[in-house]
């Protein structure tokens, strides 16, 4: 078994932390895991992605070859498309946060941000199934926009491609968070998990 997941977004959204926690949970379960993080000077608004490669026998290189992502998890709509075009194939599944983060060129008025309908249509056309998810809004509702990353990990864990359940992820959360933060993270993980298990808004 070999599952390739690209987790993408922009600097500051907690992408690296999320992929690290997911990877640790899988290693605890005995899987061979490789994670590649591309961030550079990413705190400053650039695109960020993590490659998560899960296998039951061999630890791969940290980068997923183009066209070989089984799942794309995107914390931002345009980033979902940017990554899907390069790493996706017709069998790829996509989960993406529908909240746009405008690039500098858009704010300045030199570039245009595509409509969410157009983005959604292209993601649908390029993937086997896609789950648009208002993750940031749901996280704000649960208590803090910052935990949207963990909500997205809950959504990811709900896919058949991922060999883990909430309890496996909670073990790692418990090693990294305590008190209120732990409870909030567990809660939003389940929000994301249930959202997909119940079919999501496709």
């Amino acid at each position: 078994m070999m599952t390739n997941v690209v987790i993408c977004g922009i600097g500051g959204q907690g992408n690296i932390l999320a992929s690290g926690l997911m990877g640790s949970a899988l290693v605890e379960m005995g899987y061979k895991v490789a994670v590649g993080e591309t961030y550079g000077a990413s705190q400053r608004g650039g695109s960020v992605m993590s490659h998560l490669r899960v296998s039951d026998d061999v630890e791969r290189g940290v980068l997923i070859p183009h066209g070989k992502a089984d799942v794309v998890v995107a914390f931002e709509p345009v980033e979902a498309l940017r990554i899907l075009r390069v790493y996706g194939n017709p069998e790829t599944k996509v989960i993406y946060d529908t909240r746009p983060a405008y690039p500098l060129g858009v704010l300045i008025g030199e570039d245009e941000y595509p409509s969410l309908e157009d983005i959604d249509a292209e993601i649908k056309a390029r993937s086997s199934i896609s789950y648009p998810l208002p993750a940031t809004e749901m996280a704000v509702e649960a208590g803090n926009a910052k935990v949207a990353n963990i909500l997205m990990m809950g959504a990811l864990a709900a896919l058949d491609e991922m060999p883990l359940g909430p309890d496996d992820f909670f073990k790692v959360l418990e090693q990294n968070f305590h008190g209120k933060a732990l409870e909030l993270n567990k809660d939003v993980f389940m929000v994301g998990y249930r959202h997909i298990k119940e079919g999501g808004v496709k």
Binding site: I10, A41, R44, G45, G46, S47, P65, H66, G67, K68, V78, E79, L81, R82, R85, V86, N89, P103, L104, G105, V106, D111, E112, Y113, P114, D118, I119, E122, A125, R126
Partner: peptide, 20 residues
């Protein structure tokens, strides 16, 4: 492998995300 050599699909214009 897919990727290189596969026919490109028409798509919407994606704005670049430059560092700021």
């Amino acid at each position: 492998c897919c990727g290189e050599g596969c026919p490109a699909m028409e798509g919407v214009n994606i704005p670049a995300r430059e560092l700021t």
